[in-house]
């Protein structure tokens, strides 16, 4: 499903928000992908992701530890979230060096990803674009709330929780870290960018 496609925000904010995903293909290479995804998980962790997860097990903010991602269990769909282009480039370059022949998807600014791909000698295979919202769009939360909630692709972060957390931060009932974590603990896949969330909290507190 759409995973990290519909992340709201302007280009300046999205410059600090990248998600990398890797998985095997059912009927093709899913069976033997487990060990390869372990190698990728190790590379993800080496570059200190803001968040990391596996759709089958959870994320660094839902009870998984870094050690869990390197354990004997079989990874299924691994994801890592980063806040800058240069780190993403290093991660992809290192994965490429391993010649794993497994699919990798990057979500983020198109121009920046194109730069990375060209620099490290990859070729874009497919692009998935967000073409907007249709129907009773009056039911959708405001853009400043969507900037938070769309960082969980399954939309498991409630707009009311965002409002609640913003209010508690303003009233000094939560620190900035606590506020971001309270939101991030609902995203199972590990694609909620807590660094960006903190910036958004500060922006909304002004």
């Amino acid at each position: 499903m759409s995973h990290s496609l519909h992340r709201a925000g302007n280009a300046e904010e999205l410059k600090k928000d990248y998600v990398i995903l890797s998985m095997g293909a059912l009927g093709f290479n899913k069976e033997e992908a487990g060990d390869k995804l372990k190698v990728i998980s190790k590379i993800f962790l080496k570059y200190q992701p803001v968040n990391m997860g596996d759709a089958a097990y959870g994320s660094l903010y839902t009870g998984q530890t870094k050690e869990d991602f390197l354990s004997d269990r079989t990874p299924k769909v691994v994801t890592a979230t980063y806040s800058d282009k240069e780190t993403v480039k290093k991660v992809l370059a290192e994965i490429k060096e391993e010649k794993l022949k497994v699919s990798v998807v990057v979500s983020g600014l198109i121009d920046e990803i194109e730069d990375i791909v060209n620099e490290i000698g990859l070729e874009i295979n497919t692009i998935n674009l967000s073409a907007g919202y249709f129907g009773k769009t009056e039911l959708i939360a405001d853009e400043n709330i969507l900037e938070f909630t769309t960082m969980c692709g399954h939309h498991l972060i409630s707009h009311n929780l965002v409002k609640d957390v913003l209010a508690k931060y303003k009233n000094k009932k939560l620190t900035l870290d606590e506020a971001a974590e309270r939101l991030g603990t609902n995203c199972v896949c590990g694609i909620f960018n807590l660094n960006r969330a903190k910036e958004l909290i500060l922006k909304n507190a002004k």
Binding site: S2, H3, S4, L5, R7, N10, A11, L14, S22, N29, L92, I95, K96, K99, L100, K101, V102, S103, V104, V105, V106, S107, G108, L109, I110, D111, I113, I116, V117, G121, L122, E123, I124, N125, T126, I127, N128, L129, S130, A131, G132
Partner: peptide, 26 residues
């Protein structure tokens, strides 16, 4: 050619997307 196609359909091209970077072909 996707930008041209989206422009013809009056669909705004968002700055971000989800991109398969062809790692399995590398």
């Amino acid at each position: 050619n996707y930008k041209e196609i989206l422009n013809d359909l009056n669909i705004e091209v968002r700055p971000n997307a989800k991109i398969n970077v062809g790692m399995a072909m590398a």
